[in-house]
Design a protein around this nucleic acid. Sequence first.
DNA 1: GTGGTCTAGACCACC
DNA 2: GTGGTCTAGACCACG
Lengths: 128, 128, 128, 128
Amino acid sequence: MNIIITTTSKEPIYEQIKKQIQLNILKGVLKEGDPLPSIRQLAKELRVSVITSKKSYEELEREGYIVSSVGRGSFVASNTVQILKEKQRNAIKDKLRMVIDEARLLDIDLDEMVEKIKLLYQEAENIE
Amino acid sequence: MNIIITTTSKEPIYEQIKKQIQLNILKGVLKEGDPLPSIRQLAKELRVSVITSKKSYEELEREGYIVSSVGRGSFVASNTVQILKEKQRNAIKDKLRMVIDEARLLDIDLDEMVEKIKLLYQEAENIE
Amino acid sequence: MNIIITTTSKEPIYEQIKKQIQLNILKGVLKEGDPLPSIRQLAKELRVSVITSKKSYEELEREGYIVSSVGRGSFVASNTVQILKEKQRNAIKDKLRMVIDEARLLDIDLDEMVEKIKLLYQEAENIE
Amino acid sequence: MNIIITTTSKEPIYEQIKKQIQLNILKGVLKEGDPLPSIRQLAKELRVSVITSKKSYEELEREGYIVSSVGRGSFVASNTVQILKEKQRNAIKDKLRMVIDEARLLDIDLDEMVEKIKLLYQEAENIE
DNA sequence: GTGGTCTAGACCACC
DNA sequence: GTGGTCTAGACCACG
């Protein structure tokens, strides 16, 4: 699992870690039941305060993506992929709704929007 | 011009004010050259500190939406609405790009995305 | 005499008026002894507060460029052109000194600076 | 890094601080990635309000000289010195253009201007 | 500890 | 009256 932190970003470090772990679960790099690196090890690798890595795990656990137990470590929870996908799809819908609201204010109609999306999809596939 | 601020929101107050004034300019409620309420008057109306209303105006001026001058007040900038709309269109494209990147991770293909957009457009028009 | 005010500028209006009157004297449009428009007339023409036009004249008088007398009006002082030219030459030297100080910090040497000036002179002559 | 502020100057304090930090970055006294004093520490040292030192840092960040992040502090931005130097070179050109415009009004021709510059360069080098 | 936001005062130059 | 600068406090999230 690779996690990249950019300290220059305005996004909190713990949030960056959290998102990238979610991503790894989503992409199947981390499977249900898989062990995660210990808080201390992760902190060391990322050169981050233990407080920070701890906070990431805490949030992930609170939201049901991982389970931790003292002395044993942290593991990807079961059903995580399902829950995650569902949540993310909802999140995407919300973000899309906001983008559309803005677009409509600028008189961008449905057709233009669809065209934009097609272009951006192509663009994304070419990069990949 | 109506401005509504919610102090419970995580979004800074000055950002809320700024966005709503931008909106009014883009929608044409505020036209080029129109005077804005003085920072003190606005602060009074919204029951916020003068510093807060001032910060909103500062950012709006820096981004070219308004011009302020001592002794005269603040006014909607001229020759800008078109330029600003262009800027915002670019901003929308960037946001859309991010949404699409996320969507692709969830294996949402182009067709599904287009369908989602159509639905959301309809939804938005019905609300209006 | 033509005076153009830009209310969007951060330069105070009275300062803009003052500078342009000086300019007119320097260019010979206004000659020594020539009458200036009355404070009220100027304010009316420029659509400016009388306080503002008054302030311009006050400063010009304090610095010796014009003389005013109650009931008679304001006139360009004698020796004004000489004083003005001398002052302006000094002002230019000071500004040039500041520009050079900045240039040296960016490792722009004398030759490069001279070349820049030659180019800008050419440019200015072409516009004219 | 030494910062000297003069409260008697008409130039705002935050502007003085900003300029001197810019200078230190451009001269290489502060290198990319170097930490800057915290806004509170700087405020204490210079005996100004935290708001004032903060405003300096805010503008420096907006213009790309530094990056700040909550909980970590402020640092000189990376990959920027070259870009910033370029920007400043453009700024110098603009200032030079304005000086030349004024000079031409006083019938100072190119040769005289070049001579002035040579003198001022010599002068500046002798002071150093 | 750090920076980000917010408050309630103040003085100034400009109009 | 206006906006621009400055002060001395405060609370928050982040590390």
